[in-house]
């Protein structure tokens, strides 16, 4: 029965081809450091899932942001778990992605033919930092408010165009409701959309080019 269903679907969807291309491929023997890429992917997925769940209750306005977070923490069943995973997952994701990058660097895996994989990887790291920066403001507490004040101020110190950058980031001269709503939009729509595209490219390249091998001494 199961076999019949599978065959029926395979005939139409090409499941076997996907299986062969993605799962049943030969790759070099590698060590445990090579698991950090997929660990980052896993954490990214967790961030996506918990982030979507948080948006059920979170409201991005100065009037309600803090109260809605407090409500998630104290009033909603398992809110502490969802928010806790999102909060800590962000830190772990940055950590795993960074160490993943160091691993790639150490083994020279950014060289031919994986240059583009590396470039998309750098984009992902910067995107993750951007997610961290925008997400930090959303709880609208003292810590996030003042950290973002300083963070945007830093961006504003660029000579010449600094003031404009600052105003674009904040949506005006002050850190305000406008800042919160644009950080929210960046955090849940704009960055994730871009990141998703880049992640898919990154994964496509990893599958197409294969996992890099551990170089030996004469290579």
């Amino acid at each position: 029965m199961a076999q019949n269903v599978y065959d029926w679907l395979d005939e139409r969807l090409g499941l076997q081809a996907i299986y062969d291309a993605i799962l049943d491929r030969e790759v070099p023997k590698v060590n445990w450091w090579f698991t950090l890429g997929s660990a980052s992917l896993f954490l990214g997925l967790m961030q996506g899932i918990t982030g979507i769940l948080l948006s059920v209750y979170y409201v991005p306005t100065p009037d309600h942001a803090y109260d809605s977070i407090t409500y998630i923490m104290t009033g909603v069943k398992f809110g502490w778990l969802i928010l806790g995973i999102h909060h800590w997952g962000a830190s772990l994701l940055i950590l795993t992605a960074f160490i993943h990058m160091l691993r790639v660097f150490f083994y020279g895996a950014y060289k031919y033919p994986r240059e583009v994989t590396w470039i998309t990887g750098v984009m992902l790291l910067i995107g993750a930092l951007g997610m961290g920066f925008t997400g930090y403001l959303l709880p609208w507490n003292q810590r996030s408010y003042w950290a973002t004040t300083v963070g945007t101020e830093i961006a504003g110190s660029v000579p010449g165009i600094g003031n404009i950058i600052l105003r674009i980031l904040r949506g005006g001269t002050d850190l305000s409701a406008l800042t919160l709503s644009r950080f929210f939009s960046l955090h849940i729509w704009i960055f994730p959309a871009i990141l998703l595209a880049v992640v898919l490219t990154h994964l496509y390249l990893v599958i197409r080019l294969g996992i890099s091998n551990i170089p030996d001494e004469d290579s």
């Binding site: 803090y66 778990l81 950590l95 930090y136 810590r143 996030s144 963070g151």
Partner: peptide, 29 residues
């Protein structure tokens, strides 16, 4: 484990008039 045993620190609500707060970015910055 982190979510259950360390949790998310409770901070006071953002208060633009309280400039005495020592700003700290997220640890990776």
């Amino acid at each position: 484990g982190l979510a259950a045993f360390v949790g998310v620190a409770v901070e006071p609500k953002a208060d633009p008039s309280d400039a005495s707060y020592v700003p700290r970015p997220e640890w990776y910055f």
